[in-house]
Design a binder for these strands. Sequence first.
DNA 1: AAGACCAACAACCGCGTCGTA
DNA 2: ATACGACGCGGTTGTTGGTCT
Length: 353
Amino acid sequence: MGRAPCCDKANVKKGPWSPQEDAALKDYIEKNGTGGNWIALPQKIGMKRCGKSCRLRWLNYLRPNIKHGGFTEEEDNLICGLYISIGSRWSIIAAQLHGRTDNDIKNYWNTRLKKKLLGRRKQSNFNRKETNGIDDISSNSLSSSALERLQLHMQLQSLQNPFSFYSNPSLWPKLHHSQEKMIQQSLKDSSNSNTVGMQEQKDEFDKPTNIVSGFLQQDIGANMNTPTVENPLNNNSVPFANSGNNIPMHSSSIVEQTNNMGFQQVCALQIIENDNIFNNKITLSNYLSQEEQNMARFDCFRELNGSNDNSNLILWSNDSDSKSASTSSWDSSNTPVLMTEGMFQDYELGYIF
DNA sequence: AAGACCAACAACCGCGTCGTA
DNA sequence: ATACGACGCGGTTGTTGGTCT
């Protein structure tokens, strides 16, 4: 059984709007508002249009302060970054660009921006292989959309900073010995874990990989579906990063928690294959003595950022009753662009090449 | 010149969510 | 609690105009 139609399809006009229709709709809404009921609106105006069509026309074309075309470089970059971070959630992306509609951005992305970026991909990939000699992540283990976002992410990274440290192993930070210890312990643990059916993925991780700042090299986590990270403040497991809009790639991330007691570092590994998510988390205290933890905390982040700048890190809320990381929410009404960029940065840090 | 093809954009459609009676 | 209507969103389709052959 299908859904009841919102209007009498036989008696509504479809297709392009005439200037007269535009004027009538604009005039009515400016004088009377929408009345909170789009479905009833066309009858009030005396138009033979579907209410949904009126709403779309108003939102995308007639309402004040709408910009059309002429996307700037800054807008391009923002759209790319947000698309890679959160995918095709156009309304959220549009909320970050003043005067742009989701429909406009969606069209712009599909017709121009995607091609603009992917059009340069071949050369970029060629260069990467020439310089690194390391293959990209196996494409057949990722969905097409996931792969596209990953490709775009890498493409964008190289466009924004062709000399980024991803392409320059000499810039990769040396691991503190305690971090080496973590990795070795982690690998030892993982060698005992069940990897049945994951040979291909394990092979992927057997490649020489460089994980920024001592991120853990471990192939299988415990949880599928909703990835979580343990909040050491209260031992709650909370959704990791943008759970539900997961960046489809092999990735690791690092979470630093600050509170009055100092730093607590959590290394979280998130592995995504065929849209399934495997997650693992390790806190320093699992593997290191107190002294080693203190050393690692300072060295890790200093080397990571070259400063005390924590802008690339996910920070836990200090609210005692907080059960989620600050980046777990993607409500457009309370997700400022800086937070989004912060998350984007965070994922950049987690790349495994 | 004309048909084919393509890009860009507008608009539609169906589904999930939310509010309300 | 639930049924229903409206809204919002994202994917898809339709239309138009330009370019190519």
